[in-house]
Design a protein around this nucleic acid. Structure first.
Lengths: 105, 105
DNA sequence: GTAATACATTAGCAAATGCTTATATATTAT
DNA sequence: ATAATATATAAGCATTTGCTAATGTATTAC
């Protein structure tokens, strides 16, 4: 998964907001649908994109499907940031070790 | 400038690669055009998007226009990461102070 | 001046995207 | 079994996107 792919997935405001919700807490599709002005299929489609890009995990419990963010999903983004570390570092001196952790662990 | 906007700008592989080039070093439009398989107008259009979203700076010198990355351009992204700090932190314990710097300075 | 160079902008187009409606699939309740 | 609920998938459509070709605008060279 490339950084550009992760950026593309996060680029849509609705999809980003869906991710933000499942970062805060695990949630069903119905829960999510209730929080947005779009239909359930739209939410399911966003979740499919988030799933395929490794940004969320899901588990089925009866008819309910619970979604939650996968912290590993953003690793390509962290790797990208780290790759240009020297550049950000000019302005943000103590950045190095932190990004190292985010990238490697 | 919202995080989603920054993500959208970074989402296109060509445009991301253009940004990566001007991160490494200041460069003219002609320089950039030589490095990609697309036409000069395509490069100029990507640069326009990067300019309007605050990701690059430019200066004119005669007929040449030099572009370079603006490190402040990614601040919305860093702010977004910081907003969900607690979540990443579960897996990356020493993340806090670093993101603080990136966000605030 | 005129020509050449560097870059930006416009118009047009094919492909991708995000949405809705309709429908399919899976699970639970009766 | 049948109906109801939860979610996924498909089809269709309007909008956005990234590209090229053509043209416009500065600036420098002659």
């Amino acid at each position: 998964m490339s950084a550009a792919t992760v950026f593309r997935v996060l680029a849509d405001p609705t999809r980003l907001a869906v991710l933000e919700n499942v970062i805060r807490q695990e949630m069903t599709v119905t829960d999510l649908t209730a929080r947005f002005a779009v239909t359930q299929p739209a939410i399911s489609q966003h979740l499919a994109v988030l799933r395929e890009s490794g940004l969320v995990l899901h588990r089925r419990e009866g008819r309910l499907v619970f979604y939650r963010a996968d912290p590993n999903g953003l690793r390509p983004m962290f790797r990208w940031i780290d790759e240009y570390r020297a550049f950000w570092q000019e302005r943000m001196p103590r950045l190095t070790t932190l990004l190292r952790e985010m990238k490697d662990e």
